[in-house]
Simulated assay, not measured.
Amino acid sequence: MSSSLRRGALAATALVLSIATLSACGAGNSAQTLQVKPDNAATSVGDIKLQNMTVVTQPDMAAGPAVITGQVFNSGSSDQQLKAVTVVGQGTAVKLSPAKGSGPVVVPAHGSVLLGGKGNASAVLSDRGGLKDGQQAQLSFSFQNTGDVRISAFVYPAKSYFKEWGPAGAPSAPASAPAATPSGKPASPSAKPGGSAPAKPSGAAQGKNSPAPTESAQAAH
């Protein structure tokens, strides 16, 4: 085999091995967390590990709910319940919900729970409070056995990549009630747009009120 052919075969083999390695990494248990960017610092206490925690707020600094995204790992031999999540230094309430049904959020033994995103467990702040985009927030996760675990999380608006991970929009204002007449009864609705106007009577029906034909019209007859 010539040297050029040997070099080509070695290059092809290296490419195949690289693709196989990347595929194996993407198939791991934490592959879904690789979607959460940027890769924030992780922290561990006992059997619990927090990774890629991010607070996603309403876009354009608007008031309204915010959500916490990231992944919680449990390397222990027993399940652990996530009892509460708080933003350190703020009184903003955080509502926890499991991926399916109702009840507590439980991190299974030797497993993990993903927070945020469609079909996953959720941690929703009732309001962004004093959180500012681009800064960090101190979060405290309280677990049944491990206790409190704290981590710093970046705050990002629900734009660009984070649009799909962001909170639901603020509820719209309720529709105003119909105006009432002095008698207390609702005013009658106006005519529907696009309704046809009353047809004009024909010349025969108008009788004497019909305009006389012009001289040009008489000449035409």
Rank of each mutant, 00 (worst) to 15 (best):
A123H: 05
K118T: 12
F154G: 11
V124Q: 10
V88W: 03
A9Q: 14
T13I: 15
S2C: 10
F162N: 13
S216N: 09
P157C: 08
A204R: 06
V94G: 02
A177M: 10
T214P: 00
T13G: 13
P174N: 04
Y161R: 04
G117L: 11
P98E: 03
G166K: 04
A109S: 15
A42N: 07
S30T: 12
P213I: 03
S126Q: 14
A63L: 02
Q144K: 15
A84H: 02
G117V: 08
L34I: 06
A11S: 13
N52C: 08
G28Q: 08
F154H: 05
Q58W: 08
G91D: 04
A220R: 06
K118F: 10
L96I: 09
T181R: 15
P198R: 08
K163E: 14
A191N: 03
S18R: 06
V72T: 07
M53K: 01
L115S: 08
G111A: 11
T21V: 15
F141T: 01
Q90T: 14
T21F: 14
P65D: 12
P174E: 02
F73D: 07
P213G: 03
H110E: 14
A177L: 12
G89V: 13
N29P: 11
Q51N: 13
Q32H: 12
P65W: 00
T92Y: 06
Q81K: 14
I48F: 04
K163F: 08
L125Y: 01
G130T: 12
T43C: 02
T13F: 15
P211F: 04
Q80T: 12
G116S: 04
S78W: 00
K163R: 15
I68M: 03
K118G: 01
P189V: 04
G129Y: 05
G194H: 05
S18G: 13
R128M: 10
A14E: 00
K185D: 02
V113C: 11
P213C: 00
S210I: 09
A121P: 03
A31I: 04
S75L: 11
Q136S: 11
A205P: 00
F141K: 01
G26Q: 12
P178D: 03
K100M: 14
A219S: 05
S176F: 06
A191E: 04
K163Y: 07
K192F: 11
